[in-house]
């Protein structure tokens, strides 16, 4: 291999080391940004929807209790408002099923909420006489707890996924930093190696050739320098040898 290629190869290797580390870091950075986006879009939206559902179902439960206790109008107003809020949050959750099993949980909430609403739908014309606290603890309260637990399950699932995504982000941060560190350390080690080879295969032969040429000038001894490599330095040594031979002739 010629000198130009040898020197170029050294610098090329350094460039490749740093460039590849840079490309990998940029790729990981881009995937981090999409992870953060999905964390906000997928998990946070669902957690927020689950929170709103829990708040709404609690208000509906309070409305139901008000109705049973005789405050029919206030109770009706409260449950109606909470029902709209619940359905809106449920709709958000339905349109944001991004985790495995999430759709099943949302469908379960929908089913349980339907069952909950079914038990007090005949309240529309006032509180029936047989709807008292015994009825509430026997039917209303268990149905309310079932809906609340299902919404809680949705929140827990998204919380766990959010934690997992955050842990992955930590790992990805590690994968952004490490190629840089490895590239720096490798480049340092490589610089020493490159320097060693430059010294051994370029500088040393030049020094030997120079010394020998000076010897010829001073003593007129024949030129003899052994060059191991098959490059321009070998050609130079051989040319000087020919020259010294011609001069001696």
């Amino acid at each position: 291999m010629k000198l130009r290629m040898k020197i170029l190869s050294g610098f090329l290797i350094l460039v490749i080391m740093l460039a590849v580390a840079g490309i990998f870091s940029i790729y990981e950075l881009m995937s981090i940004s999409s992870s953060v986006q999905s964390l906000l879009d997928d998990n946070y939206k669902s957690i927020d929807a689950a929170k709103k559902m829990i708040e709404a179902i609690e208000r509906q439960d309070s409305g139901l209790l008000l109705s049973i206790s005789g405050e029919y109008r206030e109770g009706e107003q409260m449950t109606g408002k909470a029902d709209r809020a619940f359905l809106s949050a449920l709709d958000t959750a339905k349109n944001n099923c991004t985790i495995p099993n999430e759709r099943d949980i949302v469908e379960d909430i929908d089913r349980k909420y339907g069952a909950y609403k079914a038990i007090w739908k005949d309240f529309s014309s006032g509180t029936p006489a047989n709807y008292d606290m015994d009825w509430y603890f026997g039917h209303g309260h268990p149905a309310f707890l079932a809906v609340k637990a299902a919404a809680g399950e949705l929140m827990a699932l998204n919380d766990a996924t959010m934690y997992q995504t955050a842990s992955d982000l930590k790992n990805r941060m590690h994968r952004i930093i490490m190629p840089g560190i490895v590239a720096i350390v490798s480049a340092l080690v490589f610089a020493f190696l490159f320097n060693y080879f430059i010294h051994r295969y370029f500088v040393n032969p030049i020094i030997s050739i120079t010394t020998e040429v000076q010897k010829i000038l001073k003593t007129g001894k024949p030129f003899s320098v052994e060059i191991e490599t098959n490059d321009e330095l070998k050609d130079l040594a051989s040319a000087i040898q020919d020259l010294s031979f011609q001069v001696r002739k």
Binding site: M1, K6, S9, G10, I13, I16, M17, S186, V189, F190, L193, F194, F197, R200, Y201, E228, T229, N230
Partner: peptide, 11 residues
């Protein structure tokens, strides 16, 4: 890169 570099230089 580390493996190939000495092969370029050392006969």
């Amino acid at each position: 890169l580390f493996g190939i570099f000495p092969l370029i230089y050392v006969p």
